[in-house]
Design a protein around this nucleic acid. Structure first.
Lengths: 209, 209, 209, 209
DNA sequence: TATGAATGAGAATTCATTCAT
DNA sequence: GATGAATGAATTCTCATTCAT
C-alpha cells in the first residue's frame, strides 16, 4: 500500500522507466493511428501524447517517424502472418468473418490490414507492403486450392478475394458505411463463404460450383 | 514569354489567361494527386507546379486546399454518378471490368473511386464521401435485383461487392500487386460476373445460382 | 429614363469611365480605411472593392499602396490646413467641438486627424506627417497668442492641446470609449474652452486666468 | 555553442534553455514592437529575431500572434493598473510627467499606453482595450474628485485628460514632434497640473477656479 | 531513461503588383 | 480606361527532429 515517493515530491512510480514497455506502448498507439488516419495525417506528437510519453522517445526508439511506421508495418506483417499460417479452405470465411467483425480484441488485426493499404511515401517500405499483400494472396490461393502451385488466374482470383477483404475493412472502419459497418459475424461469414466458393477453385480442381 | 513544353506532350504555356481552363487543370491534377497520395501527403504547391500555374491560384479558385479537395470529390461523385445511372444487372461486371482495366482515358473514374476512400479530415466532406459510398451500393443492389427495395442483407451484399471493387482498384493502383495489377479486362469481367452471380440475388428473387 | 444597354447585354452606363472620378472614389475610401484600420491592416483589395473599382487601378493612379497613402495624407493635410487658416483664439474651442462631434459631413476632417497618427513605415512620409503636426501646433499657438512668435514653452503647451484633440478623436473613433464617444458638441466645446483657457497664454501675454 | 553578444549589452546566447526567460524576452520585445509599429505591421519573425529565439517558440508559448498580442495587452493592463492604484489628486500630474518623460526604465509604461491604442482586429481583445481605457478614466475621475461616484460630465472630463495623456505619448513616441518630444519632466508636470486643475472638479465639489 | 527547450524546414495562405486583353 | 488573370514574395503556423539536462 505504500506509495514510493521521493523527498522532493516526485513519485518514482509515476514515470515508468521501462524502455521495452515504452516502445510497445508507442508501437501500439502508432499502429492504430497510422491505420486510421494514414501516415501523413498522423503526427508523432499525437502518438507520443496518446501513449503518454515524450515525443523525443520516438526518435530514440525508432530513429524517425518513418522508422516507427516501418516497425508498425513489420508488426502488422507478423500478426497477419501468424493468423494465416494454418489456413484451411473450409476455415477461411469463418476466420475472416471473426476477425473483421470481432470486437476490440481483434482490432489489431483489422489495423494490420488497414496498415497494408497505407503508404509513407518511402519506396522501400512500399515494396514491403506490396510483397506482403502478394504473399497473403498466395497463402489464400494455396489454402483454398490445397496448396497446389497457383497459376496466374488462381492468384488473380485470390487477389480479388483479398481485395474484398480490404475493401470491406475499409468500408467498415471509422464507423463509415451502413449497414455493412455494423454487420454481424454471421452474415459476413455467410457472404465470405459464398464468395470463396464462387471465386476460388476447390482443392480437387473442380469448378467452384 | 517562354513556352514550356514537356516531352510527354503536356504543354504548359506561361501566362495562359484562361480562368476556366486553369481551374480545370488544377482540378485534374489535384484529383490524381489526392487519389494517389491522399490528402495530407499532397501539397498544394505540388499540384500547382504540376498544373504549371502559380500556387496562389488554388486559393483564388478553390479558396483553400480543403476547398480544392471538396471540388475534386464533387467531380468524382458526378463521374461515378453518370457512370452508374443506367446500370443493368447483366451489364455490371462488364462495365466494372472495362473501367478498372481501361487505359489512361478511364483513369479518371478509377481516381474517383480512390478518392472516395481518401479523407481530408473535414467531417462535412467525410459525410459526403460516406453518403456517396452508401448510395453507390444502393444503386448496385437495385440494378442487380431489378430495383426492388433492398433489405439490409441485400445491401450488405452489395456493399461487399462494392468493397471488392474498391479493394481491387487499390491493389491495382500505383502498379502495386501482381498479377492482378496487370490483369486484363477479360479475366476481370469473368471474375466480377461470378462474384455478382454468387452474391447478389437475381431480379426474380431466386437464389444466385 | 432610357437605360443605355449595348447589344450584348453589357450596360454601358454601369462602368463609369471617368478617371478623375475613379481616382477620387479610391481616395475617399482609402482615407477612411487607412484612418480607421491603419496602413498595414488595410488591403488595397478592400479599398478597391469598397470603391467599386478594379484593384489594378490603384497601381495605375497612385503607383502603389504607399503612393495611395501619401495621396490620402496630402489630402488630409490640405483639409486640415484650410480648416485652420483663419483660426482665432475665441473660435478654437467651438471649431474643435464642431468638427469632432460633427456628424457624417465632418467625418473627413476627423479621418484627417486620425491619418496624422498612422504610419506606413516609409520614413519620408512619416517626416511629412510630423511636419504637419508641428505646423498645426504652431498655428494653434499663434492663433491663441495672437500670432506672436511662440517660444518653446508656448509651443509645448499648444502641442499638449493638440495631443488632447488627437487623443479625444481616438477615444471617440470606432465607437470606443463611453461616455466621451457620444458626448455632444456643447460639452466638448465647454471643456475645450476651459482647456485652452487654462493652457494657452492670452494674446496680451497675461496669465490664462 | 556560439554565444552571440551584441555591442549594446544585449546578450543572446544560442540555446538558452530557460522557458520562462524566453517567454519573458519574447513578451518584452513584442510589447515594444506592437506599441511602436502596431499589430499588423509587426511580424512574428521580427519579434523572434530581435528576441534572439526561434519563431516557432511564439506559437509554443503564446499559441499565435494574436495570443502574443493579448499577452502583451494583459501585461500592459497590469502595469497600468499597478501604477494607478494609489492615485491621489495632487499626485496625478507629477506621476504622469514622471512616467511620460522618464527614460528607458519607464519605457514599459509608455508602451503600455501606446498598446492601449493598438488594435489586432480581434473583437474580444478590442473589448478588453476599451474596457481598460474606460476603467482608467474612472480611476482618474475618482482620484481627482476624491472617489465620489462620477456622473457623466466628470467622466467625460476625465476622458479628455486621458486623451491628452494618450495624445502626448503619441506625439512624443518615435522621437516625433518637437519640442514636446524632448520636453522635460518639469514642464510636463506644470502643464498637466494646470490641465487637471482646469478640467477636473476638486474633491469638495468646488469649481476648479 | 526521460524530458522539455529549441530549431529549421516546409506547409498553406495572403497580398501588392504586373500583365494581357 | 478598365478588367481579371497571374505572379512572387512574404507571413503565420506546424511538425519532425535535435540538444542539453
Amino acid at each position: 500500500m505504500a506509495v514510493i515517493t521521493s523527498a522532493d515530491g516526485e513519485t518514482a512510480s509515476r514515470r515508468r522507466r521501462n524502455a521495452a514497455q515504452t516502445r510497445r506502448d508507442l508501437l501500439a498507439v502508432a499502429r492504430s493511428r497510422f491505420a486510421r488516419d494514414g501516415y501523413a495525417a498522423t503526427t508523432v506528437r499525437d502518438i507520443a501524447d496518446q501513449a503518454g510519453v515524450n515525443v523525443a522517445l520516438i526518435s530514440r526508439y525508432f530513429a524517425s517517424k518513418e522508422g516507427l511506421f516501418e516497425a508498425c508495418l513489420t508488426g502488422a506483417i507478423t500478426d497477419v502472418g501468424t493468423n494465416t499460417d494454418d489456413l484451411e479452405r473450409d476455415d477461411i470465411a469463418a476466420r475472416l468473418a471473426r476477425h473483421l467483425s470481432g470486437s476490440p480484441d481483434r482490432v489489431q488485426l483489422r489495423n494490420a490490414l488497414l496498415l497494408l493499404m497505407r503508404s509513407s511515401g518511402d519506396e522501400r517500405i512500399d515494396g514491403l507492403r506490396h510483397a506482403v499483400l502478394r504473399s497473403l494472396s498466395e497463402k489464400l490461393a494455396n489454402a483454398a486450392t490445397g496448396r497446389a502451385p497457383a497459376d496466374d488466374e488462381v492468384l488473380i482470383r485470390a487477389q480479388v478475394v483479398l481485395g474484398t477483404v480490404l475493401g470491406v475493412v475499409m468500408l467498415r472502419s471509422t464507423g463509415a458505411v451502413q449497414p455493412i459497418a455494423d454487420a454481424g459475424e454471421d452474415i459476413l461469414n455467410q457472404v465470405f463463404a459464398e464468395l470463396i466458393d464462387a471465386l476460388l477453385p476447390r482443392p480437387d480442381g473442380g469448378s467452384p460450383d
